[in-house]
Simulated scan of single mutants.
Amino acid sequence: MHTFKALALFWLIAFPGIVNAQDRYVCPSNGSELQQLRIYEVNRSNKEAFHKRFQDHALRIMKRHGFKIIDIWESDSGEKVEFIYLLAWPDKSTMDLRWKEFLSDKEWTDIKKQTAAESGELVREVNGYPLTRVSYSPVCAKK
Rank of each mutant, 00 (worst) to 15 (best):
V81N: 03
K113A: 10
Y25C: 13
E74G: 03
A49E: 01
S75D: 14
E118A: 13
I72T: 07
D71R: 07
Q36M: 02
F10T: 00
M1N: 08
S32W: 08
H65N: 13
L7V: 12
P28D: 11
A58V: 08
E41G: 07
N20L: 09
H65P: 11
Y40M: 13
M1P: 13
P130I: 00
L86Y: 05
A49I: 01
T109P: 03
V134Q: 15
H57P: 03
M62E: 08
A88E: 09
Y129E: 00
M1L: 12
W108F: 06
D96R: 08
E107F: 12
K52V: 09
I18A: 12
G17T: 13
E118Q: 14
A14S: 07
I70P: 01
C27W: 05
F83P: 10
F67Q: 04
A6V: 09
V126D: 09
P130R: 01
D91C: 15
F50R: 06
S75K: 10
V123Y: 01
A141K: 15
A58G: 02
S45N: 14
D105G: 08
F50G: 07
V42W: 01
V126T: 15
R44N: 10
T115E: 10
T3S: 02
D56N: 05
G128M: 08
R133D: 04
Q35L: 10
K142H: 14
A88G: 07
R133N: 04
V42T: 04
K47A: 13
Y85F: 12
G128Y: 02
V134L: 15
D96M: 08
L12V: 01
L34S: 04
S119R: 06
P16V: 03
I111H: 01
Y25M: 15
S104P: 03
K106G: 15
P130V: 00
E74P: 07
L34E: 06
A141Y: 13
Y136S: 15
S32H: 13
D76Y: 00
K68S: 05
Q55L: 10
T94Y: 10
F4A: 10
P130C: 00
E125L: 15
F67C: 05
S93C: 04
V123Q: 05
R44F: 11
W99M: 11
I70Q: 07
N20F: 04
Q55D: 12
R133H: 04
H51F: 12
K47W: 09
A8R: 00
K100E: 14
F15Y: 13
L87E: 10
R98Y: 11
S32I: 12
